[in-house]
Amino acid sequence: MKDTSLDFYDGLADTYHLIFKNWYEAVQWQGAFFDKFIRSLYAEEQEGPIHLLDASCGIGTQALGLAQHDYTVTATDISSNSVERAKREADKLGVHVHFGVADFRTLDKDVPGQFNVVLSADNAVPHLLDDQELSVACRNFYEKLVDKGLLIISIRDYDEILQNRQRATLPRVMDEGKRIVFQVWDWAEAGHHYITNQFIVQEIDGSWKTQVNSTSYRALLRSELSTKLEEAGFADIRWHMPSESGFYQPIVTARKL
């Protein structure tokens, strides 16, 4: 299946915020959530700034929020359009973030230095469609961490999704009915791959406009990701489910020891 993530995020850069009821509130909530989550697991750096790499920053949903909580944040993404949007949003919010364009698969070359925490939230890692790409990315996450550093990844609950191969998400109706957001998933006949078609439907000046952006994912099982992290050298691999963490996706954490 073709890697379509770059076109997908470049095409969504100007409208990605419309997926959220209120994107700026989401930035605040995610910053507060991950600040509390990280500090509960990374006590070594409690007294000073934590140097964090958001390796799939998009337009800044996590990076901008964490920059408001005494983190030194470097934020990268494969999409240069998304990074440029994130820079503009950082200026609006008055936060300082080091931005760059980088790919999971070449993170070791694209991003200098090492970090206390490497973060990839909101199902970015399943854009890696085969085991080789996933292994390379996991090794690069490992290389970007200092000793005792913490890796944090969130993905969809594919263990649950694969039981019935979900075909769509429920439409979310916002702006008093003037904006509808949903996804349609087209599954490959064989294997655990699918295409997400992201629909943003809006009433603008009395006319309805539809934007559709599509990208490929691998339905990545928790055991598969855990195995690749272990092979890359990570230890203390733990899964934090939504019922425990309060986040909307399963989160895996792992340590570089």
Results as ranks from 00 to 15, higher is better:
257 L>I: 14
221 L>P: 03
123 N>L: 02
65 G>K: 07
39 R>H: 15
116 N>G: 12
74 T>Q: 13
223 S>V: 15
57 C>K: 02
114 Q>F: 05
149 G>L: 12
203 E>T: 12
216 S>W: 09
254 A>N: 07
7 D>T: 00
42 Y>F: 14
246 G>P: 02
37 F>Q: 10
167 R>I: 12
182 F>V: 03
40 S>D: 15
102 A>C: 07
173 V>D: 12
29 W>D: 13
35 D>A: 05
194 Y>H: 01
238 R>Q: 15
139 R>S: 08
68 Q>C: 04
100 G>P: 12
255 R>W: 06
77 D>V: 04
181 V>I: 13
26 A>R: 06
221 L>F: 01
256 K>E: 02
241 M>H: 11
153 I>Y: 13
163 Q>H: 13
126 P>F: 00
95 V>I: 04
72 T>R: 12
5 S>W: 00
110 D>P: 05
135 S>F: 12
205 D>V: 10
18 L>T: 08
80 S>N: 05
95 V>Q: 10
135 S>H: 15
80 S>D: 07
3 D>F: 03
132 Q>I: 15
53 L>P: 04
180 I>D: 07
64 L>C: 10
140 N>F: 15
92 K>N: 06
60 G>L: 13
248 Y>V: 08
12 L>A: 00
102 A>H: 01
105 R>K: 11
86 A>D: 14
238 R>T: 13
82 S>M: 11
180 I>E: 09
20 F>M: 02
179 R>L: 15
95 V>R: 04
246 G>E: 01
85 R>C: 01
120 S>E: 12
150 L>Q: 10
175 D>M: 06
185 W>L: 14
214 S>M: 10
166 Q>I: 11
213 N>R: 08
17 H>Y: 06
179 R>H: 14
221 L>E: 08
83 V>L: 12
236 D>G: 08
190 A>T: 11
109 K>H: 07
153 I>Q: 06
214 S>T: 09
237 I>S: 08
166 Q>L: 09
51 H>P: 08
119 L>E: 00
46 Q>I: 15
26 A>F: 06
164 N>S: 15
205 D>T: 04
67 A>K: 10
227 T>S: 14
204 I>D: 08
9 Y>N: 00
211 Q>W: 00
117 V>F: 01
195 I>Q: 11
202 Q>E: 11
178 K>E: 14
127 H>K: 06
216 S>N: 10
94 G>V: 07
128 L>W: 06
240 H>D: 11
244 E>T: 14
72 T>A: 07
97 V>W: 02
83 V>S: 09
24 Y>N: 11
37 F>I: 14
81 N>S: 08
151 L>P: 15
